[in-house]
């Protein structure tokens, strides 16, 4: 196979958990030949400065996204429903990451 090049490696989305107890957050994307390589590449590209304790990768083609063109109908209706926000609770300082 003489025409092998990086374009043939699929794109992967990388999610990093920065420390135990927190959620995995989208960190970026990269190319890799398979899942193992994707995790290793993610380790090298995104966790070199101790940014993470856990990595998820998923091939980008498996991510289904909402249509930006439908943003108005999807999200605007929530705009004026302030009663959905529990703003009347006092949150103790000790509770973090809420």
């Amino acid at each position: 196979m003489s025409n092998t090049n990086k374009n043939e490696w699929p794109l992967w989305e990388v999610f990093i958990r920065s420390k135990a107890g927190l959620d995995h957050k989208h960190a970026g994307s990269l190319h890799a030949a398979d899942a193992e390589m994707a995790i290793e590449n993610a380790r090298d590209v995104y966790t070199r400065r101790m940014e993470g304790v856990s990595i998820w990768v998923v091939e980008s083609k498996f991510i289904h996204a909402s249509d930006p063109g439908e943003a108005e109908s999807l999200y605007d209706p929530a705009n004026d429903k302030i009663y959905r926000h529990p703003t009347f609770y006092n949150l103790p300082d000790e509770v973090k990451y809420m």
């Binding site: 990086k6 990269l30 190319h31 590449n41 090298d44 590209v45 070199r48």
Partner: peptide, 12 residues
């Protein structure tokens, strides 16, 4: 490196 990701891997 042959690709960016492996370049970084080797440098690490």
């Amino acid at each position: 490196g042959p690709v960016l990701e492996q370049d970084i891997a080797l440098t690490n």
